[in-house]
Design a protein around this nucleic acid. Sequence first.
RNA 1: GCCCGAGUGGCGGAACGGUAGACGCAGGGGACUCAAAAUCCUCCGCCCUAACGGGUGUGCGAGUUCGAAUCUCGCCUCGGGCACCA
Length: 916
Amino acid sequence: MGAKTTPGPPKARFFIRRKPGMSATQDARYQPSQIEPRWQAAWDAASCFAARADATRPKYYVLEMFPYPSGRIHIGHVRNYTMGDVVARYKRAQGFSVLHPMGWDAFGMPAENAAMAEGGHPATWTYNNIAVMKGQMKPLGLSIDWSREVATCDPEYYGQQQALFLDMLEAGLVYRKAGIVNWDPVDMTVLANEQVIDGKGWRSGADVERREKEQWFFKISDYTAELLAALDGLKDWPNKVKLQQRNWIGYSEGLRFSFDLTEAAHGHSGIEVFTTRPDTLLGASFVGIAPDHPIAKALEAHNPAVAAFSAEARKGAATEEAMATGEKLGFDTGLRVRHPLHPDWLLPVWIANFIKMDYGSGAVFGCPAHDQRDFDFATKYALPIIPVFVAAGTDEAPLTEAFVPDESDVVHYLRPIAGEAAQTSAQAVEAAIALCESRGIGKGAIVYKLRDWGFSRQRYWGCPIPMLYCDACGLVPEDKANLPVRLPEDVTFDAPGNPLDRHPTWRNCTCPKCGGAALRETDTMDTFVDSSWYFARFTAPHASTPTDLAEADYWMNVDQYIGGIEHAILHLLYSRFFARAMHKTGHLPAKSIEPFNALFTQGMVTHEVYYTRRKFDRASTDGDKEIQVHVTQGVFHFPEDVVAGDYQGTRVGVLKADFDSSLSFAQNYERVKDDHEKAVVIVSSVKMSKSKRNVVDPVAIIEQFGADTARWFVMSDSPPERDVEWTASGAEATHKHLGRVWMLCDRIAALPADQPGEGDVDLMRAMHRAIADVTQTIEGFAFNKAIAKLYEFTNTLGRTKASGAAQKLAMRVLAQLMAPMVPHLAEDIWHHQGGAGLVTLAPWPKADPAMLVEDTVTLAVQFNGKRRTEITVPSGSSNAEVEKAALADEAVIRGLAGATPKKIIVVPGRIVNVVV
RNA sequence: GCCCGAGUGGCGGAACGGUAGACGCAGGGGACUCAAAAUCCUCCGCCCUAACGGGUGUGCGAGUUCGAAUCUCGCCUCGGGCACCA
């Protein structure tokens, strides 16, 4: 931490003073390290957080996306789980029966990579990490029902996942087919389309190759239309997420029809295409097919020139460079098709690299005049460019680029198929589809970008797919009685590829159908399968079926789901599909096909980056010459090694090793500012990463300041959906504030209960206002505003002269309102103020509406909308009374200078506007 | 290229179309102290003024309105998502 005031923990340097009346057990200092473990033990002893299905109470299920057990908790985890915990504790106090579970997304490649790098077994690595991370999370005091903890790598979990798989297989939602897959050459496994980012594997970053392979698929396409339509019903999801899902599903409306080949080729008499622009059919100049189109494949087998071209086109399609430059490559097959509207009009058939086999039918008709991609292609290969329409009021002229107007713009059709000469393209498309259908040329069709989810992975550390290969019976599902199909423990990671393939005996098994010898499937499931149903498993984590319907019926749906925006597409779309599949197979009730009622996507925790520069010369070559080049390299520093501060308006730093604490920061900086190896440059906040060394370790924070400080800090200032910057001074200020609250509690506890005072009504008004505001802001996920209100109320309470009894009451309520954010401190205050039992179990306070009304109200007075002065009137004054009071005001009289106002607008409780 | 979102003090951020800058951080001044830390008081958008007070101000430009940070239109900048999708 770069604190320039207090570099170390706030220990022996505090001035300790005992006050009369201080309780014997209470020290004068706020010491979270003593308070926090004590109250955590008290919560455990009272099993405050065990979720019980209680038919007499409303339930509330709050869930944060479960973590991958990487080995250490991150400050982002702290923010994520604290948000969930604030909601859980608040809802519990509101009388809900709350389910707030935690588990581990425990399968996946890092465990295997660790086994490869360091030896050992993925299971050992994973379970060790879980133990460490759980140990780091526990001190946060999260109100989690740990009895429901699950790890997806536990056979108890993945065995039920296998049962679910078998049910889905039976329901026709799983199939196997050969297809072109995305192959990650580094991780040596298949990736889903969603896991390919800019042509690279989402984990390895390696260029993804296209390979043909037998794959297992989930039939997500059965639900495409529904998954799209149901997004509209998700009222409490961020629009951003719904939009991303909509784009991903990718809805297109158009016409599907065939071009007849002049001569049948390799058993094909025609080429089916899909188009969203049938209105441009008379602008056709070629038909393009994908290199993987069946006709192209057949030609390839007979023609080496086609084979050479296709090989080039396939290679190019996957590389980033090809996608960036967008170079169009084509090969004229020599085949010809007839235009459906004019059988004598022949069009050439080209193989083109920009056409994808897995969208539409893998073939398009090219209309260069109205599609930029086709235009580029036609220009390169000298194909005709025939305009179908022109902008309204213009004549036909040679095109330099494709003319693609907005679909709601009216254009003038030179070569219309149907409809008026002047119409929008949306109207023309509709008319063209109707005409084509009536003439038997194709059919209106809807096409989606979303494809089935290929989920087999050639890895060890995943859920085995419970299928067998029997010579006699073929592909056979494993008998449910034999589940779980366990991963073998004796595996090696000394060679690339899947260790299950290499295992000497694991594959050998008995066919449940015929009793003969069979071989197991060695592919395992994508880890996204594991996370697609864990929320349902939490409702009955130890049931002997995937779920227990009675429990699922009580607890589902997840009322509030909280997690990162990075899961907007993959995890959330898969989970929505799984919920439907689980309903179809009888594992979830109908109400749960949309499993997450409300979704909240939180921002990241960021930190500024500190670096110094190292300059040196390095030998290099320039052509044949040996030369010296000057190199500048940034050297990153950890926050705890830097003292940051302000120097002449710029935020800069000094390395702690160079810092002389007897001098001011400016003096320190002046000593190093001309030395680039010592003067620390600070760049604004970015996502924490190990390579930039701008990481803040939550464990260190908790040790230094306590869990409550960490919790309060990550909830304050920034709205939860936005990124929050972690600053050393901010964390320290938070700690000081909590210390002040603690001292205030101490002072109020020492007051005699019968001590008289004045301003009780004002204090009670402030208290009820605070209850109302904090309640409302927590409900709205505006935790930063809730905290601002708590600061305000604390300041009021700190200044009040009210009676002892009123102050004690206000202090107890303050503890209750703070409890969701800082539960340990709240318990301590509650205890010292004589609150009954645990504040965690106390019912949430209710604001008295009568106490929210003030006696008087202050109104601003404007002249023509500009604020001039303000007046105070009794609340409930009529508009006429307010107007009279305003006109009697000295500043208003002065401002009017004898003139008569044209109009006076009175907004009750808000404003008076005098129009002159 | 297409689709979203956001621009408010030195900083994080508040503001049912109604007193812009709540609350916090940082900073200035003061009290206490031999001193420091801690604590407390106080000031704090910018410009003019000794002060009272006035002007100006929510990325830029228009518009709607008695009144716009907020609504509409057009720009600019930044961030995010998708992308040879037929």
